[in-house]
């Protein structure tokens, strides 16, 4: 059954001490590090946003001479890579989300109704055998 997120307190918070401890250690290190007081910052009068845009697309000519990043061609490659990764993620999400009925794949975004949610088939992609009830109901429908 679907449960709403519940805040559980008590012993289950115990591992959280690790997170706190990590914070403590890291904070100690950060505070002990001698950072320079002043930030270098960006030169006056340039638009950071547009500089980022030029850098992303390797528009070297348009970048301001002062405070520019310089050789930005690799950014273009990374940009394209990110586009590909996002595409792949989208496709993967669709694949993961689709479900099968009567052996036919039903797209996750399909407008065709497959009945109420209770009768949805579990995808047999991995060891779903742990959940006996859903398996058995699926077995009857087949």
């Amino acid at each position: 059954m679907t449960n709403g997120p519940q805040l559980r307190l008590g012993e289950s918070l115990l591992p959280g001490i690790l997170a706190v401890a990590l914070f403590g250690v890291m904070a100690m290190i950060a505070l002990n590090t001698g950072f320079a007081d002043e930030m270098v910052g960006f030169p006056e009068g340039i638009s950071v946003t547009s500089e980022i845009g030029y850098a992303l697309f390797d528009f070297t000519a348009l970048q301001s001479t002062e405070g520019s990043i310089g050789n930005t061609e690799p950014f273009l490659v990374s940009f394209l890579l990110v586009a590909v990764v996002l595409d792949a993620a989208l496709d993967a999400a669709l694949v993961l989300a689709k479900r099968e009925t009567e052996g036919k794949p039903i797209a996750a975004l399909s407008s065709v109704s497959t009945g109420d949610s209770a009768s949805t088939q579990p995808a047999a992609t991995d060891g779903g055998a742990e959940d006996g009830s859903s398996r058995s109901s699926g077995g009857e429908q087949r």
Binding site: M1, T2, N3, V85, L86, A88, A89, L90, A92, A93, L94, V95, L96, A97, R99, A108, T120, Q121, P122, A123, T125, D126, G127, G128, E130, D131, S133, S134
Partner: peptide, 20 residues
């Protein structure tokens, strides 16, 4: 964003297999 897309997909499958 990509990670969230995948993560949600995994959660969907998780739910389908374990009802939870």
């Amino acid at each position: 964003a990509a990670e969230v897309a995948i993560g949600l997909g995994i959660i969907l499958v998780l739910y389908r297999n374990f009802r939870d």
